[in-house]
């Protein structure tokens, strides 16, 4: 881990960046936490391992960090996907971010657990960016990613085969636990609206009540807003205290975007965004 600390110190000392967003050790061994480095002493506390789960890209759109000029960020491949998408959506300037890319062969799914083949995160099973596809410097080495059955996908197929009524019942039961803490939104790098539609109260579009209607309204609108934009970091699902399987929604939307438009968010800086593009050749057969 020394190369990360040294690189961070070098960047701070030569003035490339004033601040680096990285990870530090958490309360227990198998846990890390986001950590803001402003000095060489801080840089000593940086860590990177299998327990660096957070997608730190969500901090890039915060006003406090935008004020700092070029911001350094410790990023895994999946975090870089978010950074690329943010640049494409004009939320972050390409020249305002210095990416310390980390080779990553997988992270743990649930913080606190030991990393092994049964606890490797679902997103890592199909990862295409173990080596970050955009970076200013690249650190770390790759090992083999543990393999396990993708239970999430099995469940997706099961939901696909349900009738509309069964699907409604499934989601009604899942959403019932929602407490409207909005941790899903807050942890999401793509949820950067200055004022979220759920916070608009004059008039109120999304009921703040955590009952069936309010919970459906919130979770559906969030899923729609992420269609073709979600990079699949799965931070929303991890942050959810009620353990609602939000990845099922986001993954389904992502797969649909890929199938219909051959588009994967966050992969290529030069591809226009899916929802920000109009093409006269776009299919219109869904308008009836």
């Amino acid at each position: 881990m020394n190369e990360l600390k040294e690189k961070a110190k070098e960047l701070l000392q030569n003035g490339t960046v004033k601040v680096i967003i990285g990870f530090a050790q958490g309360t227990i061994p198998n846990r890390t936490k986001p950590f803001i480095v402003r000095s060489v002493e801080d840089a000593e506390k940086l860590v990177f391992n299998k327990y660096c789960v957070n997608n730190l890209a969500m901090y890039l759109t915060r006003k406090e960090f935008k004020r700092n000029g070029v911001v350094g960020i410790v990023a895994k491949g999946c975090d870089v996907k978010a950074i690329v998408q943010l640049i494409q959506e004009n939320q972050v300037k390409k020249d305002d971010v210095y990416i310390i890319g980390m080779n990553c062969s997988g992270v743990v799914s649930e913080l606190g657990e030991e990393f092994n083949e049964s606890t490797v995160a679902t997103k890592c099973l199909h990862c295409m960016v173990h080596t970050p596809h955009l970076h200013h410097t690249l650190l770390g080495s790759l090992e083999e990613t543990p393999k396990r059955e993708d239970k999430n996908f099995v469940l997706m197929q099961k939901i696909d085969s349900m009738t509309a009524e069964e699907r409604f019942d499934f989601w009604e039961a899942e959403f019932e636990r929602c407490v409207k803490c909005y941790a899903c939104r807050q942890a999401c790098p793509m949820c950067y609206c200055e004022k979220c539609i759920a916070d608009k109260s004059i008039p109120r579009w999304i009921e703040s009540s955590a009952h069936t209607r309010g919970n459906f309204a919130w979770n559906m609108i969030r899923a729609f807003h992420l269609a073709g934009r979600c990079v699949g970091c799965n931070e929303c699902e991890r942050a959810c205290p009620a353990e609602i399987p939000l990845s099922l929604l986001n993954r389904k939307m992502g797969m649909t975007a890929n199938k219909e438009f051959d588009y994967i968010p966050g992969m290529n800086l030069n591809t226009p965004t899916l929802v920000g593009t109009y093409d006269v050749n776009d299919r219109e057969d869904f308008i009836k």
Binding site: K33, I36, M58, Y59, E64, K180, C181, A183
Partner: peptide, 16 residues
């Protein structure tokens, strides 16, 4: 402010 810097501002803590 140091804590606030990384805090997401979600309500997980209060609701739990």
């Amino acid at each position: 402010d140091k804590v606030g810097e990384t805090c997401l501002g979600c309500g997980q803590c209060a609701f739990a």
